[in-house]
Amino acid sequence: MYSEKVMDHFTNPRNVGEIENADGVGQVGNAKCGDIMKMYLKIEDDTIVDVKFKTFGCGSAIATSSIATEMIIGKSVEEAVGLTNRAVVEALDGLPTQKIHCSVLAEQAVKAAIYDYAQKNNLVIKGLENYKPVDDVHDHHDHDEDEE
């Protein structure tokens, strides 16, 4: 069902935890739907120097959170805003169709954390101008083939 890469990140998730006095914190999803992702960012000179995450969710939710942290560490804030769920899926060597929404959650969690950073510091960040925090990405949850 899952690629080796997914299983690796699920079993040995990178950057689990919290950052005290983080510069940006974002949380998306909700427990009702069975998935919550929380991202903590440490930002210096417009660069993401540290990331930590906490996730309540399925195997691919944990794996996408883990790989997303790796993908944005060392990047500029602007670059990190550009992280797409597709890039996350690719980096994991693919996800089952019904799990694509978990990667959307990862993308959203990163954006939410950067948005929080921007709000705190009164910044306007390219790519986030029209961003609205959402905690419901569940349209993607239903993916089953139609019954005719």
């Binding site: 699920f10 399925c58 195997g59 939710a61």
Partner: peptide, 14 residues
């Protein structure tokens, strides 16, 4: 409480 069933199953499977 506080955890999700699929991750539990996967971890048990491992």
């Amino acid at each position: 409480e506080f955890i999700e069933g699929e991750s539990l199953l996967l971890s048990l499977d491992m």
